[in-house]
């Protein structure tokens, strides 16, 4: 689905072309299509926006994107999309722009925190005792004094526990699921600390990191973020602490730079830098500054405010 006169015909052509090329006997859900037509199937990052909210999809259409609706599926794919768009909740547009901007920045900070916090813990405790402030040193050492595992194992155990809780909660009916989350979180956490299996400092960090990873508005990228930290933890252990984490970050940045969404760069508006599009990326500026459609959709009609043109027709295609 797209809006003629706004959507770039190239994008439409790409989508149609790729969908026609699909050969598979069963398409249960739009996410099947999403995986099959994405530019790089090996990437853990979703390259098409996936939403079940009509408001999100309609606004994507108006921005000049193409939407893919699948029969029998509540999810609609829209593209081309960018990385920062995954961290924008649609509620941002319902709030005044200062508050929305603050929330977006908090969300992006949360993502970084979630990916990097536990690897940094491993890095610092395993290699870089130098950078621990003197006053914190006592706390850290005494909390780790009786723990038999090296930091890497300690972190992996706790991270896996959190993943287990999440997975168990997701499989059970909602009511029990919530209970499992709370009971498991509190009981297992405290018990692990009391038993001397993990340090309480780490417990706080892991819990915060898990919490932070749930702030992403799109579920699919939340999964990616949660799993991303495992390679980072391993790199931090194997590649020399901070250097390892930095190498990991470099690989990640390169990977993101190489990704495309329907042939458009995925990291836009950061790179290639488009100052125009920053208006709705990390910050959400007020509506009177949002007069243009995003550049990366290369929309045929760049202006959102234009009274002279006839109303564009809606075309529906699968």
């Amino acid at each position: 689905m797209y809006i003629e006169g706004i959507a770039n015909p190239d994008n439409v052509q790409t989508v149609i072309q790729r969908i026609t090329d699909i050969e598979y006997d069963q398409i249960m859900d739009s996410s099947f299509i999403g995986q099959m037509i994405s530019d790089n199937e090996q990437s853990p990052f979703p390259q098409l926006m996936d939403s079940e909210r009509p408001d999100r999809v309609s606004s994507a259409l108006i921005e000049g994107k193409v939407a893919i609706v699948c029969d029998g599926s509540p999810h609609v794919l829209t593209g081309p999309t960018t990385l920062v768009e995954f961290f924008a909740a649609y509620e941002d547009y319902f709030l005044t722009w200062h508050i929305a901007t603050a929330f977006r920045i908090i969300r992006i900070f949360a993502v970084m925190f979630s990916v990097l916090m536990t690897p940094l813990y491993v890095a610092v405790l395993t290699y870089h005792y130098h950078i621990v402030p003197g006053d914190l040193l006592g706390t850290l050492i005494s909390s780790r004094k009786d723990i038999p595992f090296p930091p890497i194992l300690e972190v992996l155990i706790l991270e896996l526990t959190i993943e287990l809780l999440r997975e168990a909660g997701a499989r059970l009916p909602t009511k029990i699921g919530q209970t499992i989350g709370i009971v498991g979180g509190i009981v297992i956490g405290t018990a692990a600390v009391e038993a001397g299996l993990t340090s309480n400092v780490l417990l706080i960090l892991v819990a915060l990191a898990a919490l932070a990873s749930f702030t992403t508005p799109i579920y699919r990228i939340g999964n990616t973020i949660r799993l991303l930290r495992f390679p980072f933890i391993i790199l931090a252990q194997m590649w020399g602490g901070l250097i390892g984490v930095v190498i990991g970050v470099m690989f990640l940045v390169t990977h993101l730079l190489r990704l495309t969404s329907l042939g458009r760069p995925f990291t836009e508006p950061l790179f290639p830098p488009r100052w125009q599009d920053l208006k709705d990326a990390f910050v959400r500026l007020p509506f009177n500054l949002q007069g243009k459609r995003p550049i990366y959709t290369s929309s045929e009609d760049q202006n959102r405010i234009n009274l002279n043109k006839t109303k564009p027709k809606k075309g529906k295609r699968k």
Binding site: V253, T254, L257, P265, T267, F271, P272
Partner: peptide, 8 residues
């Protein structure tokens, strides 16, 4: 483009 992106 990637090289430049990294440099950026």
């Amino acid at each position: 483009r990637i090289v430049v992106g990294f440099a950026f």
